[in-house]
Design a protein around this nucleic acid. Sequence first.
DNA 1: CCAACTTTTACGCCGCGTCACCGTCT
DNA 2: AAGACGGTGACGCGGCGTAAAAGTTG
Lengths: 339, 339
Amino acid sequence: VLIGEVARRSGVSARMLRHYDALGLLGQVGRTGSGYREYSGEDIERILHIESLRALGLSLREVGRALDDPGFRPSELIAELIGQTRERIAAETRLLTQLRRVGAAEPAGWEDVLQVVALLHALGSENAGRRQRAALSSALSSAEEFAVPVDALVEAALEETDPNVAGALRWALARSGGGLQQLARGLGSPVAEVRERAAQAIAEIPGEAATELLRAALTNADIVVRRCAALALGPRGSAEAIPTLIDMVATEGRDVDAADALGVLAGDPVLADRIATGLVNRLTGGAVDPAARRQLTQALAGIPGDRTSQALTELSRDADRAVAVTAAYLLKLREPPDR
Amino acid sequence: VLIGEVARRSGVSARMLRHYDALGLLGQVGRTGSGYREYSGEDIERILHIESLRALGLSLREVGRALDDPGFRPSELIAELIGQTRERIAAETRLLTQLRRVGAAEPAGWEDVLQVVALLHALGSENAGRRQRAALSSALSSAEEFAVPVDALVEAALEETDPNVAGALRWALARSGGGLQQLARGLGSPVAEVRERAAQAIAEIPGEAATELLRAALTNADIVVRRCAALALGPRGSAEAIPTLIDMVATEGRDVDAADALGVLAGDPVLADRIATGLVNRLTGGAVDPAARRQLTQALAGIPGDRTSQALTELSRDADRAVAVTAAYLLKLREPPDR
DNA sequence: CCAACTTTTACGCCGCGTCACCGTCT
DNA sequence: AAGACGGTGACGCGGCGTAAAAGTTG
């Protein structure tokens, strides 16, 4: 069979058939008296084999090695090819999300494209300084002509380990005002750090939508998220955060911040009563550790109202000297200034 | 700034910087007195721009065209790049599934790999004849050393439009005995044809697992699926199919097949009674169209038992002549042979 | 004799590493 | 004067299209 016939039937161009021959992939191909290549049935079969292996992604060189080595184990090669293909898909997918972000920024001209690309690239950089600069510039560039790619900011904020850069990213997000939906998804991440970062980022975003999200986060499965949400909800005047905040006052660590948040909420007299009652219930409930009782007592400092005054009077006779002294001191502070 | 410095700070190799220069991407780069390239701040900025565009997947030639044309609209280019990238991802993904299937076939040597690849390739061919041969060969090759990639068969069977090839594929699937799980997923496809093909394929697979799946399919949202399942469940002795089959008898199209299936089920005397009752209820229920009544009467032919005989006696006096004649004829057939 | 084949040889593409060989700074 | 820079030119890789120039079929 001559080369043209083989080319037509196998779908491989005559050029490539000659190339295979030149590379020695076919062993020796027969020739007619006048020098034309004469392919045998075996040759054709071998050509089909070559095409099969090439379809799996092997290079011609690899095909040659594979077909020549009769004792080759295919399974590991297949596994390796799978790995390589996955890697390529991952790279292409990263490229695709970059492209989508650039497109979403609706650049008006090349200048904008270049700026967005540089920004995205810097946000994904290994270098913390570059990331920092990128975060700051996206925080400040909201007045530019192109839209800052919010989802890239969210992704960066959720993955950022450097605290300074993370802060800058949260600031940028807060200024952009968007990304709440993706941050909300971050609250459900399997990774604890991501959940916490999402909660912090939402906490720094102003507006009713973020507040609503924080209220929902009060029922999050992750206690860290719940506490972060509660701290942020205090200044926003959300009474739903009170139980979590009282829990936090009784816990080591964020008790001062929680007490402050309760103090802000207690600006409303109705809430002040509820908060005071909650704190007192905690103090008189059984099995509370002494350190927690002291923190709860101190938290009463920020809560106005008669309910607190009564509680402090009783606490000034508390069995725990530290509690009694603190309560007495706070009581004196609350005496009316007109002697 | 000399080339080495630029290379170190931009991450672009000196080789490539010279290449950019040779391609004219940078306009004219300055030179020192001794002929060294001297990059200005603008040059460096331009280099960063080039890198940005290359990161988006543009070739050097495209970068040159883009940067030279000041009035270029970037948005359409971005859209095109997105399309191309998606296409590449799709191609790589197809390759990945092929590779996984080859790996799943656990080939012992190159021979097996080649056969599996050829088979997969033929299954995905445009040419119906090739697909047919591939289907037949995978139906017959279950005795070979390698495992036929069942999921490829399922995918092919769910997408096949040629009825002959589809039949061969279902046969191959039935012989392989696997793929039920993926076929079950096909029952939930948004495409009606795919759902029907999945149902047909399951119907041809023997065994309790397939029967169970068919029973579940009786509650499928797609009526075609339900009917296909019911037809297949008849011969498997599943009484659950009876209501659907009776519905089918009263409907144009598959009524004869449904009647046959009911006849098989009626081999069990208890079921025979239930079926007869069901058919009679349909006949005496209000607002049944005449054609349906005739089909229901004919279906009684295959149902033994006294209940049927009584019904036929009554029907032989039916107002519809066709029904009455049919019933009378069937009654005569049922007279005991001993005169 | 012509048309349709075949043959070999060779260039180009694209992005880039790497050499060779030579000049120029400090 | 050594060694770190810079310059140009060229080759190679991989997979193939394409084209030229010539010979072989029917």
